[in-house]
């Protein structure tokens, strides 16, 4: 085992650059996943099966196929339809769409967990459908699923290195480039691995604490 502190120091600025991109991809992907997942969750509740069935089929398909292949799909197929995005944008869209199928389940569990009495009370007060959702159901449903959503953000963080495969300059891609340039692979890859643990472990502790706090 040979650890070269000089190489580690040389990679440090690159690691920080990569970290910025990793966090950016995670944050944007998470926002997209939260928004799209809510759309899926509401569509599950649609009164017509012409909405419910296709949405269920699409969501199950996306969830049961690999993120990497979906990423290739968007990266190589979208340009043939004259839709041109940067690698990072493609990555964020794929990541967000993939994880929206997970957040949809989380929202659904949250919505199912709202007591029936709340629905009945909303009906009794003759609130409109939109008011019932925005003022009664969703605030209660989302509150109790915050830790579960947080856990998926951590999972997304750990999946962002996949974007390196299409050339997004995240931590892993920077480590690959550094390795190719200097033939020092040990330090960059080890540092990236540790960086993930250093971020993900405290974050998951936070989610566990939040979960206890919300009484799950």
């Amino acid at each position: 085992m040979s650890w070269d502190w000089e190489a580690a120091r040389a990679f440090w600025p690159e690691l920080l650059h990569g970290l910025g991109v990793t966090l950016e991809a995670t944050a944007l992907g998470a926002l997209l996943a939260f928004a799209v997942g809510l759309v899926w969750a509401l569509a599950y509740r649609s009164p017509t099966r012409w909405v419910r069935w296709p949405v269920t089929a699409v969501v199950e398909f996306i969830r049961n196929t690999p993120l990497l292949v979906q990423l290739f799909f968007f990266f190589y197929v979208l340009p043939t339809w004259d839709i041109k995005f940067s690698a990072l944008t493609t990555g964020v869209i794929t990541l967000g769409l993939h994880y929206s199928t997970y957040t949809a389940e989380v929202y659904r569990a949250g919505i199912d967990g709202v007591p029936v009495g709340q629905w009945e009370a909303a009906t009794a007060l003759s609130l409109s459908r939109a008011r019932t959702w925005t003022a009664v159901i969703l605030p209660q449903a989302i509150r109790r699923v915050v830790p579960a959503l947080g856990n998926y953000v951590i999972a997304m963080l750990k999946d962002t290195p996949i974007l390196a495969i299409i050339g997004v300059l995240d931590m892993l891609q920077n480590a690959r480039l550094e390795g190719a340039r200097t033939f020092q692979y040990v330090e960059p890859f080890t540092m990236v691995g540790i960086a993930f643990i250093v971020i993900a472990y405290p974050a998951s502790l936070l989610m566990r604490a939040l979960e206890r706090r919300l009484g799950h």
Binding site: K158, D159, T160, P161, I162, A164, L172, A175, R176, G179, Y185, V186, F189, T190, V192, G193, I194, F196, I197, A200, Y201, S204
Partner: peptide, 16 residues
């Protein structure tokens, strides 16, 4: 092993 990314771990096993 839960804290780190599977892909990074794979790269680590391959290159390091």
């Amino acid at each position: 092993f839960r804290g780190t990314s599977a892909l990074v771990l794979m790269f680590w096993l391959f290159f390091v």
